[in-house]
Amino acid sequence: MDPIIALSLVLALVAGATVLGLVWRARQGRAAVVAPGATAAQDTPLTPADVASRLPFGANGTLVQFSTDHCARCPGTHVLLAGLAGQRPGVAHVDVDLTHRRDLANRFGILQTPTTLILDGTGRVRARIGGVPNRSDLLQQLDHLTGSTHDQLTPVTR
């Protein structure tokens, strides 16, 4: 192949990888709202037993973090979520190790760690965050949770 064409293909490869990286980064850590009534499975409230947690869920909401023992960002995310949960009354943080719980990873369709589910006071999934949570997204979701405890039917919007 002509070196100029080969060089162009190499540059195209770099450009493609850059686009891939930008798309990936834009999606990382953003809270994806789970609309109530989307599917029956999503509407079923979760219990601590559903995520193999020995700790109870919070009265106002729970941050369910999924980790493995091969996860560079999970410890940092743990610190972030535990800190935020500690500042809010009735909000719990649960860290679930998927390393030996393939069933849970499959049930919740976890494709990356950390992944965080934001549950309301009833245990229903309100939002989902893939990757290290974006702090302001997370705070917004927590505000909605504590604000919507009197009217559970109000959909969470961003």
Binding site: R54, H78, A85, A92
Partner: peptide, 9 residues
């Protein structure tokens, strides 16, 4: 309230 993170040695 928080659970311990998975952290093998």
């Amino acid at each position: 309230m928080t659970s311990s993170p998975p952290s093998p040695a």
